[in-house]
Design a protein around this nucleic acid. Structure first.
Lengths: 211, 211
DNA sequence: TAGATTGTTAATCGATTAACAATC
DNA sequence: TAGATTGTTAATCGATTAACAATC
């Protein structure tokens, strides 16, 4: 797997967006697209698309463009859709429960295998067909089921402890919904969803428009 | 309000992060911090912090650093925390309901004034003290209550229609939780939370670690 | 073949970092 | 005053865009 050079995060973060647009094209039975056409749909330059895609190899064909199906599935592979990543949700509050029903887990090739909480009122209840377990069983469950990802929807006050627990349990990636930064070993991948940050950027833009 | 020059989105998107770190310092009764200290806490360069802050004016003091309280409240102002933005949530499914209870709305100076849906099973129910209204009342409610922001937690299939409806109703900003891009008039501010994009970036990183 | 469009190199633009004079 | 640290300019680095030869 000889990597040519480090691919920048800026490129990686655009891949899911390409993936969505290609998914729409597939749905509309469009089989072929040029970088120029796609660029105009997405509001970016054709150059950027070609540069981005060529980080991963030449998916196109000169004089023709790109096969939509091929490109869609190639980007999917790059993003790991075929890995069947297994997920547990830790924290079965409102957000955790909403995510347990999140249809894109399935659509994007992920599988929710377990839900955990600390509260006795919640433990034992069924969410989307899965019984909420006591967090004490996280470690044994994770090992047994080879869980890859922990979705953390616990209160900020306990986020760091829970994150460490998940690491001890052998989790490899964390999808963090708390507004705290996690300082974890280098081999753990963390992806943050800082909702409040996003909201405040919206607040900033609105404030600008006021003036 | 003479703007010197355009402030880049890269800078803006870092502001909420500064805001969070400063909030922690305030909570810990730390009254003074240098760019160097803050930089080491945040894992960025002191230069970047000083450059970022100086987009908005000189908040520091040579030889001393920054007053934590002042800086915190100044950044808050920039982000619009004092504007008391009014919010409606459209789509009272699981995610909408979870967001209706989101504590950071209050903490960051936002107020949820209304919740809307199309389903008769949901309309009339109470979520966090607010009765879910029929979306037909969106326009009159928005005008009457001077609502600024619509949080869109509706299915992707209806997102574009609902976004247009919100614009007609006089909303100024949209917090979009669907995986679709919105093409709206220039005076409407859109902030996207593309959960599936975030998840797929996590998937990418995990796939890389596999090799 | 001629036209179209890629893959890729070179040029430009913007963002980050370094350096330092100003000054508290 | 001497030491510390900012605000700001200059240097570097990286990302985006433009251009074009290769080729389907």
């Amino acid at each position: 797997m000889e990597e040519r050079k480090k691919i920048s995060m800026a490129v990686i973060r655009r891949l899911p967006r390409y993936y969505r647009y290609l998914s729409d094209l597939v749905d509309n039975d469009i089989s072929r697209i040029s970088s120029k056409e796609l660029a105009s749909k997405m509001g970016i330059t054709a150059s950027q698309i070609r540069q981005d895609l060529n980080c991963f190899g030449g998916f196109g064909q000169q004089g023709y463009g790109y096969h939509v199906d091929t490109l869609f599935s190639e980007i999917g592979k790059i993003l790991g859709t075929q890995n069947n990543f297994k997920i547990v949700i830790i924290g079965a509050g409102r957000l955790g429960r909403a995510l347990a029903h999140y249809p894109n887990f399935i659509k994007r090739g992920y599988e929710v295998t377990g839900i955990f909480d600390v509260s006795n009122t919640i433990i034992g209840s069924i969410i989307n067909g899965i019984e909420v377990m006591n967090i004490d069983y996280l470690k044994s469950f994770t090992k047994l089921n080879k869980v890859d990802i922990a979705v953390l929807t616990v209160p900020s006050s306990s986020i760091r402890d829970v994150a460490l627990l998940a690491c001890e349990a052998g989790i490899r990636g964390i999808w963090n919904f708390s507004p705290k930064e996690l300082d974890l070993p280098d081999d753990i991948v963390v992806e943050n969803v800082h909702l409040s940050d996003s909201l405040m950027v919206l607040g900033y833009s609105l404030t600008q428009k006021n003036d």
